[in-house]
Design a protein around this nucleic acid. Sequence first.
DNA 1: GATGGTCCGTGACTAGGTCACAGAAGGTCA
DNA 2: TGACCTTCTGTGACCTAGTCACGGACCATC
Lengths: 220, 220
Amino acid sequence: MPGMNLEISTCFPQFSHLDADSARLLENNARLMDIPSGTVLFRDGAECSSYVLVLEGSIRVQKVSENGREIVLYRVERGQSCVLTTNCLIAREDYAAQGVTETDVRALVLPATTFRALLSKSEAFRDFVFSAYATRIADLLLLIQEVAFGRIDVRLAGWLRSRTASGDAIVATHQDIATELGSAREVISRQLKEFERRGWVALHRGRVEIKSRDGLASLA
Amino acid sequence: MPGMNLEISTCFPQFSHLDADSARLLENNARLMDIPSGTVLFRDGAECSSYVLVLEGSIRVQKVSENGREIVLYRVERGQSCVLTTNCLIAREDYAAQGVTETDVRALVLPATTFRALLSKSEAFRDFVFSAYATRIADLLLLIQEVAFGRIDVRLAGWLRSRTASGDAIVATHQDIATELGSAREVISRQLKEFERRGWVALHRGRVEIKSRDGLASLA
DNA sequence: GATGGTCCGTGACTAGGTCACAGAAGGTCA
DNA sequence: TGACCTTCTGTGACCTAGTCACGGACCATC
């Protein structure tokens, strides 16, 4: 598969330490896939058969409740893999959440058997998988902390800030933001309105324009 | 250390597959420790220098907010290790939560260097560490789901049920239960009072007596 | 039985989530 | 251009959960 090696080595510098054997295993069994934006890659309860390495684009992993509320757990982006998938492959369990491509995604897909083989053969691959776990666990703990104890205005302000520079605008509906934070649309609408009243943002249909990052920062 | 091998092999059957080399590494470097109930093993932000395998007893791992609220993330019990510790050792980061012994605990303590050596040498040890990650991630996702979307009455009823048979009593203050669920003492008091009104429990100082598991089950 | 610590109950209030509905913005098509 | 439809936003009313303040109950100890 021409060019694949180059892409792998730029996105996953860790894999440059793969021994020749493992590198061959990877090349021979990986499939390069292009997945359009909005594709549901896996659902809560689905079983899992392959390992995914993202070369380009972003996958959103989220939990959906019975009554339709959602919360984003984390994103899988260029150079990352999905821990939930790792989890399923290792524990041979079903997925515990849902994964959706947020943009067009180019990814490397490994069959479960190749994944397991690499895991036992290659120290570099193992290190990669272990670090992926470590960073995600830290993310999840932070999320628990926020959801359990955090105030929604603070979380919203933080989220807005994390996505922009002053003067920028965020293209997202209030519902999108609610999903992102695991809250409800009406709550977000009201908070945004209050931020607008304070002159921190300007509201448009499907778009939030940031006027004062300092104002937002004053909440955190 | 006489008897240590026996204890290891009964609590950690996985380690019976350790190769001779790794087993020796483990034996020569592990320290057997007895830790009294109520000891704080690590705090949020502390750095981490050793790996812990629990032989007997229970460690509670919890997140504490600035304003004093707490939530239990998971427990480390006989035959388990603490993922958070694993995490710190792998990512070389500080602890992101607090760990406290809930009972007297007997544990095997490995220096970080031994842990890393075992991780790279022994397949059996790696498998153990990977499965530990896998089960904890599943736990944490469930917790996020509950905290983000769950009703407190349902969670309380479920927790009470999970700890008893009918006629049993749970020895815990309302504050203990609130900590367990990441809620507030007053909220738990009110819910318990309501459960009592319905005849599902009887309340005593520091003790909740379960009268009807079926009643509690009707909420879930 | 007086004293002090822990635990529990409760009213009043605030924050955030739910429900219902109205109206605004923007696209499409005659 | 205007009628029509869909999606997005705003808002009042209400409910659930968490916070604050405080009083009183239970229990151990002297």
